[in-house]
Design a protein around this nucleic acid. Structure first.
Length: 213
DNA sequence: AAGCCAATCAACCGCATGCAG
DNA sequence: GCTGCATGCGGTTGATTGGCT
C-alpha cells in the first residue's frame, strides 16, 4: 500500500534524543497518552516525527522497561523462542516482560548469536542445568498472578502472536491445533481462556523445542 | 597519550499490515 | 473493492565506548 510520508521533512530533528526532549515526551504522554503518534510531536512541541517519538517511548522511556543485563533464564528463553519463531523479535519480546524487541534484537546479534555459534562449533551441551524448569519458573513468576478465584494472564502487549505461534507449532508437529479457539478468545484481555491458551502455547513451545518439562 | 578496531546500542529506514472512508 | 493513512516490525546504520597496541 501507500507508504506514509517519511519523517525526513525539513526542520524535523534526527539523531540522539536530548534529556529535554525525553522529558517533554514523557510528560506529554503521561498527560494525554499516545492516541496518535503522528500528531503527538506537533502537539507536544517536539521537532521529531511521530515514528521517532514512538520508538523512543517504546524502546527507552516507557516506565515498565527493564534495563540492565539479561539473566540466564531470559537468555535461554530468547534462544528457545528464536528457534521457534525466527527473527520475530516483537513476538519474542512479548514473552519477556520489560524487554523491547529492539533490545532483544541487539542482544541476539551481539551476544547470543555468537554464543550459539560457538556452542554449535564446540558441540557442547547447554551450560545451564534444568533450563526448562528455569524458564517455566521465569514465565510463571513474570506473567501470571493468581488470586483465590482467578488466574490472570497479564501481559498487555500480547496481540495476535499466539495465533502465529499456534500456526507455527501446529504445522511443525502433529499436536492438535487450537488456533481457531485462540483466534476467538485471545484479544489481549486477561481471562481464564487466555491463560489456558498461553499454557497451551508454552506447552507447544517446550514440546517443539524437544525439552521435557 | 594517541590511534585503531571491535563491540554495543540507540535510532533510522522502508516495507507490511490493518483500518477507515 | 480501492485508496490513503497510521502504526508496527525487522533490517540496517552510525555514533559511542572500551580495550588493545
Amino acid at each position: 500500500m501507500v507508504r506514509a510520508p517519511c519523517c525526513e521533512k525539513m526542520g524535523l530533528k534526527k539523531g540522539s534524543w536530548t534529556p529535554e526532549e525525553d522529558q517533554i515526551l514523557i510528560s506529554f504522554i503521561q498527560k494525554y497518552g499516545h492516541e496518535n503518534w503522528r500528531a503527538l510531536p506537533k502537539q507536544a512541541g517536539l521537532l521529531r516525527c511521530g515514528k521517532s517519538c514512538r520508538l523512543r517511548w517504546i524502546n527507552y522511556l516507557r516506565p515498565d522497561i527493564k534495563r540492565g543485563n539479561f539473566s540466564e533464564e531470559e537468555e535461554e528463553t530468547i534462544i528457545k523462542l528464536h528457534q521457534l519463531l525466527g527473527n520475530r523479535w516483537s513476538a519474542i519480546a512479548s514473552r519477556l516482560l520489560g524487554r523491547t524487541d529492539n533490545e532483544i534484537k541487539n542482544f541476539w546479534h551481539t551476544h547470543l548469536k555468537k554464543k550459539l555459534e560457538l556452542k554449535q562449533h564446540n558441540d557442547l551441551p547447554s551450560t545451564s542445568t534444568n533450563v526448562s524448569q528455569k524458564i517455566e519458573h521465569h514465565i510463571s513468576s513474570n506473567y501470571y498472578h493468581q488470586d483465590s478465584q482467578n488466574i490472570v494472564a497479564y501481559h498487555p502487549t500480547c496481540r495476535h502472536d499466539e495465533e502465529d505461534v499456534q500456526e507455527n507449532t501446529s504445522s511443525s508437529n502433529d499436536t492438535p491445533s487450537i488456533k481457531e479457539e485462540n483466534m476467538q478468545s485471545t484479544n489481549g484481555h486477561g481471562d481464564m481462556t487466555s491463560f489456558n491458551n498461553d499454557m497451551v502455547f508454552w506447552y507447544n513451545v517446550f514440546m517443539s523445542s524437544g525439552n521435557n518439562v
